[in-house]
Nucleic acid binder design. Sequence first.
DNA 1: AGGGCATGGGCAT
DNA 2: TGCCCCTGCCCTG
Length: 269
Amino acid sequence: MPEGHIIHRLATENREAFGGRPVRVSSPQGRFADEAKVIDGQLLTGAEATGKHLFLGFEEGAWVHVHLGLYGGFTFGTGPAPAPVGLVRLRLENEDGYADLRGPNTCALVTDDQKAAVAARLGPDPLRADADPEAAWRRISGSRTTVAALLMDQKVLAGVGNVYRAEVLFRHGIDPHRAGRDLTRREWDAIWADLVALMREGVTAGRIDTVRPEHTPEAMGRPPRVDDHGGEVYVYRRAAMPCLVCGTDVRTEEHAARNLFWCPACQAA
DNA sequence: AGGGCATGGGCAT
DNA sequence: TGCCCCTGCCCTG
């Protein structure tokens, strides 16, 4: 279950596994079967991530547009692909291995123009070299919407999800309920720079770690975090547990239909 | 066996 | 704002 760092990682993994070579493309589940036939056997020419969108490029110009949503995921394997387990929407195979895609929100064959249109709807992606943080600031600085909601809005920022949202606001001591227009330029610059650094680390590690060295389990003499999401974090899914910095209970609430987590003391209004 | 939940997003209202 | 979609897993009973 992915934020942008996972999607960028998947672009690299697909490129390394299949790039520059012919790929057998199928849809064991059947829902992508007609589209798979169109590109089956073509060279995979590229793989690219923009925010939470993944694009796999094929020889004759088509792209497979993948959005994992909440539940989607890729499984990579070496050797011959086994009989599909569960509902495999998309399967890529060559002589060396295979990749299975399950449960995506989107898996569609698109043109260059359609791919560009997706990117055009998105705000800057902290993981992309061509990102323009000014575009995000323009939408945030005048907005009455909460910072919490703005950071999750893919038209404002692309690739940031619920974990990075909660964690970056904690790291900067910002109350998630503040309006975008009340954020200072200095605060925004720091948030952006931090997202760039954190998400790059996330791509490398394949998980989200946001806890500074002085607050790690080792440094604090506490047991490591045990959570299926895997990383060491300050507030995400730590409701009613003591803040790692000040000991106040971390709070949670539903905010714009998503779970929000914050420390009411470290992130005071 | 069945319900609830999840790192998401588009649509209708 | 609510509803719906997608899937797997973990908890209950």
